[in-house]
Design a protein around this nucleic acid. Structure first.
Lengths: 251, 251
DNA sequence: GTCTATACACCGATAGAC
DNA sequence: GTCTATCGGTGTATAGAC
């Protein structure tokens, strides 16, 4: 399920370096545990050090500041979330291979969305780290992991949402007239992300992403607790409808 | 635009009491300013006291704890947000009185949603206070202001979304079969809120709410900054489509 | 690379004088 | 009702010994 290793490590590492990596990993794990137990806003170098039986100063040897630790955690959380979504979509039966007697097959898009929701619910604090209030006095690096992860995620949903449609179809999507300025802006986005999508499709993708994210955010942050045990069903129904409505807008 | 005063104050207040109210109000204002300047997570009694030229202990005379202050602020923020949405919908031209030559009239529902978005953007920190990560070591009172405010907000959107439809129509809304359990659960919700809506309509309302909220949350928290200056247009388009799709599901 | 010690901030909350 | 003083805790970060 995990994507290709991000560190191919072609040259063998020295013993020193290996030790350093191991220690760094241990710190990251401890920090992650601390977040899942006390929330992202309670994260501090001291707390992590305590839980490792070290002193703070040792940590400064691996992370020059609190912010650098946070950035590493944010990056990993984005990756894990994307892996979860990717894995969910991957494991699903291809839409084209559904049993013909299956009256209500689950589109892969819905399954991917459920992967998103499931990860958020399984790791609410790390989800908070990504999409909750920004951490006090933490400034995310510009063009940093956030942007990159966003691109990866949008690539996944883009595939699931628009699979089977031609560019011509997407271009002709029935979206209320977008202003020329917006059309131009969307067309000039970096081509590795949303830039190679027709503006109408990008607008639909953003709308769908917001829809999915909004339902998950409301649930994870407890604003729809009155739905009780039926959150999953509400979510699935909404995502089904969303996909149906969206596809109806593509000729 | 503001709703009726919440404190009708039929009996005249004693001088003592008036002074106390004034001081309390001053503290609340200062706390609000502090939040808008430094974010909800930086809120502390000490900081508020400083900005008022008082010492902390004076504040304890008006608010027994930090949590009580936070609760007051949360309540007020919910009220202000609901006022903004209510006001936006109120000021709008009724849907039935649109000029017939207006090819693209803005439904009141969309205008209300834009009120939601506008408030969130104008007060991002207070919006964070409501919908961002929960404050460290703050536990919202059960059945407290959150629940009540939610009810008020849902009442507004409920009206705008389903205005003009009969209960029979709403009952027959084209939503994939909801499970009997979910239907029963939704029907048994407190009748002053969503309980008097047919289950299918409640499901649609939740979906629409999530949609609107998700787009706003992504924008306010900076996850869609690549859209640049066109956020408003994207939002309006999405909300238009959402309403259109939703209405299409009601016979 | 890890430690002790330290500087310098912050916080919520309480006791008791006035 | 407001003050000073204080307790006991949190945090980031640095200096210097080993």
């Amino acid at each position: 399920m995990p994507a290709d290793d991000h560190a191919p490590a072609p040259a063998p590492l020295s013993l020193r370096e290996r030790r350093r990596r191991a220690a760094t990993q241990e710190i990251l794990d401890a920090a992650e545990s601390h977040i899942t137990e006390h929330g992202p806003h309670a994260l501090s170098l001291r707390a992590v050090a305590r839980s490792l039986g070290m002193t703070v100063q040792a940590l400064y040897h691996y992370f020059p500041s609190r912010d650098s630790l946070v950035t590493a955690l944010v990056t990993k959380a984005y990756d894990d979330l994307a892996d979860a979504v990717h894995g969910a979509a991957q494991d699903a039966v291809p839409d084209t291979a559904q049993a013909p007697d299956d009256q209500h097959p689950l589109p892969r898009m819905v399954i991917a969305a459920e992967g998103y929701r499931r990860w958020a619910i399984a790791h609410p604090e790390r989800f908070q780290l990504l999409y909750g209030s920004p951490l006090r006095s933490y400034e995310a690096p510009v063009e940093g992991p956030t942007t990159q992860a966003m691109r990866r995620m949008s690539a996944i949903f883009q595939r699931e949402l628009f699979e089977g449609f031609t560019t011509a179809q997407l271009t002709a999507a029935d979206v209320p007239e977008l202003s020329p300025g917006l059309r131009a802006h969307l067309e000039n986005l970096p081509p590795d992300g949303l830039g190679d999508l027709p503006p109408a499709a990008t607008a639909l993708l953003l709308s769908g992403w917001g829809h999915m994210h909004g339902l998950v955010v409301l649930e994870v942050f407890g604003h729809t607790s009155f739905v009780g045990e039926y959150q999953a069903e509400i979510f699935r129904t909404a995502m089904r409808n969303m996909l149906e409505d969206l596809r109806r807008r593509i000729p």
